[in-house]
Design a protein around this nucleic acid. Structure first.
Lengths: 153, 153
DNA sequence: CTCATTTCAGTTGCACTGAAATAA
DNA sequence: CTTATTTCAGTGAAACTGAAATGA
């Protein structure tokens, strides 16, 4: 009995929290693999994406935009700065703040990450039609909005 | 500017992988909190649920049923056995195997975990109608099935 | 010899906490 | 005095890897 018929309990497979966490795991596996092949991690993509979309920002603001912890932002910005993908500079208007800016090399790297991310999305959504995908995004967005009680904390 | 208008980049919020992982994070936070209040962790619930639904099983089989790693099954079964919630015994038909069985105390504990889990589901699905919930489970199940290439490995 | 099972030791990406220093 | 920002050190649940011992 090498690989038996070890079906997952239906009390698990019927629960949305199980489905979501299993899918999240699968997506996470695909993403870390894809990002690693481009030389980065999820945290790096989040930061670069936020910076390109909303412009230079303080580290605290970046944390709020990307749902990252303050201390993880510090570490990830360190790594990006070491690779010359972002630049740290003091905010003249508020001497506590570091203003983080994307460099041209950072924007180039972001494009690579966007490409591998697009492939992962396609693979993840493969079995769904366009209408299905829209419906999925709609449902998930409504759930997430409902639980975003404290967005700007 | 205490808590600014730090909106999440739309390139993130529009991607299913982002929505799924953020929701998974939220569900995970609720679940670990709820399970902790009952004195357990997610791994413990998975094992107890599998044992009650499919009956006594070897640790390798439990790992396949619950998508847990072999080495994590060892640790979690140790903890459950220490608390008297499961019992380990040698398989007479295959001397490599440990047959894991739920004890009455284990079944009682599982019921508590089921209750707190039900509350978390309700909270997670709060903004969705019954039809929405069915649609969500349908979509997620189809995605998960598609990616379950190697189920029995 | 090959493969499956159990076990242990260790790693990793991610989320989070506590505390200190600094400045608004 | 209170609050916000940055930083560092450390914790924790979860997923995973490699290797060893044992037995089918």
């Amino acid at each position: 009995m090498t690989a038996a018929d070890d079906a997952t309990p239906s009390r698990l497979t019927s629960k949305p929290s199980w489905l979501i966490s299993q899918l999240s795991m699968h997506a996470h596996r695909l993403l870390t693999e894809a990002f690693a092949s481009a030389g980065s991690r999820g945290y790096h993509y989040r930061l670069l994406a936020a910076l390109e979309e909303a412009g230079p920002a303080s580290q605290a603001s970046l944390g709020r935009q990307t749902s990252m912890d303050r201390s993880d932002v510090v570490a990830a910005v360190n790594e990006l700065a070491d690779r010359g993908l972002v630049k740290r500079s003091r905010d003249p208007a508020d001497n506590r703040r570091n203003i983080v800016t994307v460099t041209p090399a950072g924007k180039k790297h972001l494009q690579q990450l966007e490409e591998v991310l697009a492939h992962v999305q396609d693979e993840l959504l493969a079995p769904l039609s366009a209408a299905d995908r829209a419906q999925l995004v709609n449902l998930l967005t409504r759930m997430l909005d409902h639980h975003a009680t404290r967005v700007g904390t």
